[in-house]
Design a binder for these strands. Structure first.
Length: 362
DNA sequence: CGTTTTTGACCGGCGC
DNA sequence: GCGCCGGTCAAAAACG
């Protein structure tokens, strides 16, 4: 009983912190947006070789900051239309059919995670349509397509990591052309934000862009072909015992350079948890799942003592890393746009997201 | 009986 | 041009 009261008090404090955090995110986002706007204007004035299509759509917002929500009008109507940003961003940039740097190749988001089940439950419905033994990895690679809509082009590849078969490597490709179930939105948001970040980096021909994540080679190569043919961003959700204390790492440069496209790696490993969320069924970013949206009655008791530390780390990460900020903003904006926040549990709706305004976040 | 999975065949891109 | 390889197709099998 006493324990429960402590937890409730803890949750309230947590909510207050998160509320503050969200306000800070919003302020940072606006600041970032302003900087991007300035950046674009400078480029226009200076006759830069940056893709002229960027920022031409009137609202002075970089595609990359849209975090993968491919259709604003749809979003405003309360439908969630999220997915990998590759096609959406490319389409936005190439409204007249102009070929961008991606050369028609879709951005891929590769999620590496520790998972016991054959596939990660990301909330979507998938139908397996093929399986292959890829060269260099004895573990078969399975091919799935989204079956929520018969016309949905989204595919995913699932393969076990050769050197540690408990690690599941899921590669998403394409953009959902239909509303997603609630449970699938956060994963799609996260991957779409990641893909947006990748494309925002890939679209810039100069390394000076503030969101540029260019040139972060993969520390592990899953197979050498997929990453060679498409720009790929890797979300690493695997605990790395040797990692530093920050749960969010941009991998330092490694020796495996991608010959054709940049590969960006984002690590969401935490020092506290040594398992990946067994299920993405909750549909949240693992960090968010643990820290923001997990109702106390579902909470893992083992995580309670470290919550404050994690919160502090999260705060530090968010305030220090614009890319992660973008990812979180993407998730939050999707939730807000979907009106789904309240369903996600706890006081997050009434208190924590009161300050969140979808029009400013999306 | 409808849906999903399995699995060999096929196709296209790429390197030599 | 040829062979290799990844990705997809589609018929058959399995499943619920």
């Amino acid at each position: 009983m006493e324990d429960l009261r402590c937890k409730v008090v803890g949750m309230r404090e947590e909510n207050m912190r998160l509320k503050t955090l969200l306000q800070k995110i919003e302020v940072d986002y606006k600041d970032l947006q302003r900087k991007v706007s300035d950046f674009q204007q400078n480029f226009k004035k200076n006759g830069s070789d940056l893709d002229p299509k960027i920022g031409d759509d009137g609202d002075q917002e970089l595609v990359s900051l849209r975090l993968g929500t491919s259709d604003h009008s749809t979003e405003r109507n309360g439908l969630v239309k999220v997915g990998l940003a590759g096609e959406a961003a490319a389409a936005a940039r190439n409204g007249d059919g102009e070929i961008s740097q991606t050369s028609g190749k879709r951005a891929r988001v590769c999620v590496r995670a520790r998972c016991d089940t054959p596939t990660m439950n990301d909330g979507c419905q998938w139908r397996k349509y093929g399986q292959k033994i890829a060269k260099g990895n004895p573990c078969p690679r399975a091919y799935y397509r989204c079956t929520i809509s018969p016309t949905c082009p989204v595919r995913k590849q699932v393969q076990r990591f050769m050197e540690d078969t408990s690690i599941l490597i899921t590669t998403y490709e394409g953009t959902h052309n239909h509303p997603l179930p609630l449970s699938a939105t956060a994963m799609a948001s996260t991957t779409s934000a990641a893909a947006s970040m990748l494309l925002s980096g890939a679209s810039a021909s100069q390394p000076s862009a503030s969101l540029n994540l260019y040139g972060q080679p993969q520390p592990y190569l899953i197979s050498n072909s997929s990453s060679n043919t498409s720009p790929t961003i890797t979300l690493d959700l695997i605990t790395n015992p040797s990692s530093s204390n920050t749960p969010f790492n941009l991998y330092p440069s490694a020796s495996l350079a991608n010959p054709r496209f940049p590969t960006t790696n984002l690590s969401f490993s935490t020092v506290d948890s040594n398992t990946l969320p067994a299920s993405w069924g909750g549909g949240y970013h693992p960090l968010l799942q643990q820290k923001m949206f997990e109702p106390p009655y579902f909470g893992n008791p083992n995580q309670v003592p470290s919550q404050q530390a994690l919160t502090e780390t999260l705060t530090k990460v968010i305030s220090s890393d614009p890319s992660f900020r973008s990812t979180i903003a993407g998730v939050i904006s999707t939730m807000v746009a979907n009106g789904s926040v309240g369903k996600m549990g706890g006081e997050i709706k009434g208190e924590n997201l009161a300050a969140a305004d979808s029009s400013t976040l999306s």
